[in-house]
Design a protein around this nucleic acid. Sequence first.
DNA 1: ACCTTGATGTCAGCCGCTGTCATCACTCTA
DNA 2: TAGAGTGATGACAGCGGCTGACATCAAGGT
Lengths: 192, 192
Amino acid sequence: MGRWEPNAQARLRQAAMDLYAERGFDQTTVAEIAEKAGLTERTFFRHFGDKREVLFGGSERLQEMLVASVTAADPGTDPAVTVAAAFEHAAEDYFPPVGYSRQRQQVIDANPGLQERELAKLDGLAAAMAAALRERETPDLPAALIAETGVAAFKVAFVRWVTDPADAPLLGHVRSAFAALGDVWSFAPGRI
Amino acid sequence: MGRWEPNAQARLRQAAMDLYAERGFDQTTVAEIAEKAGLTERTFFRHFGDKREVLFGGSERLQEMLVASVTAADPGTDPAVTVAAAFEHAAEDYFPPVGYSRQRQQVIDANPGLQERELAKLDGLAAAMAAALRERETPDLPAALIAETGVAAFKVAFVRWVTDPADAPLLGHVRSAFAALGDVWSFAPGRI
DNA sequence: ACCTTGATGTCAGCCGCTGTCATCACTCTA
DNA sequence: TAGAGTGATGACAGCGGCTGACATCAAGGT
């Protein structure tokens, strides 16, 4: 047996997640993951760019969803509204149950390297959305600003979602965050 | 000679920066940095947590400045205004000449790992500012939101600063970004 | 002169990650 | 049905980042 058993990637991911949750990320070696999946360390690195990447699979899909939302929106719509709507849409369709997200976040929060990777993914999201906005004739500065601050707001909403004792749905947190965004930054000019 | 020559940390930093700029980050080994500084690899890791950290020294000072600004501001001031003012203040006092920042950014942009570390530092900034706002009785959601989106806006301003062919000062870019922030997110409710 | 302290050197070792080449299962084609 | 091609995996060697443990050396105080 061994070779040619199907779903190598899925088996590796499962083995990795189990070990990360069970004994922590640093205390897990790639060799152990591979062995548990009945494969080789070398094969692990053929399926995942690095040890951290296991936890961030599927983030490309989120990015595609967000970009698609922005691109598909009515060209007349305000770009900020477009981005807010894109995140609200993703909040409904993309994310796994809060229990899974909590466990995953627990692993990430316990490791600085994983946090760095997560931030990088979010930054990639912002860059992609900014590009999508520019495609829609939004000028550079507002495009970058809306994308970056939109991601920042979503980040806040996400944290509140996984830490919410009331288990309110993500969509609600996203709506609150974007609503508050409008209030918070609407001060009169000449402030300094 | 060798041992007990002064300024070990500064020599290591200088050697590292030179090598990173000259031949790239990945193409530089810690052993080479240490040798160029007349020290040992082991000693490098006594002064810097890892190979990347060399490029991010002094970020604690920026964080302290921002937090101090927020903490020192008139308690009656709107928190968003406080954060904007903190960044404007930092833009004037903290940053090195644009030439140095450009060279540094060039090294960082060429390496994903360095970008991750930079994002982590920015995230640390946001967390610290959020805490400072909470200290001033700003409720959780707006505190997190203002801190995170404030950092996001600053990020945009910084990028525009180092890529600005006109060499306009950072302060102007920061002001533009925060001004645009108010415009951009001030849409009417009931949008979706 | 001795002792303490802190920075450095030395050595061994783990582990993430990569390049290279062989090997195997499967498929297509003659 | 044999043989060639293809793609995934195994096996092996090696680099380099990073750490722990212990020895060593310069300086300051007693």
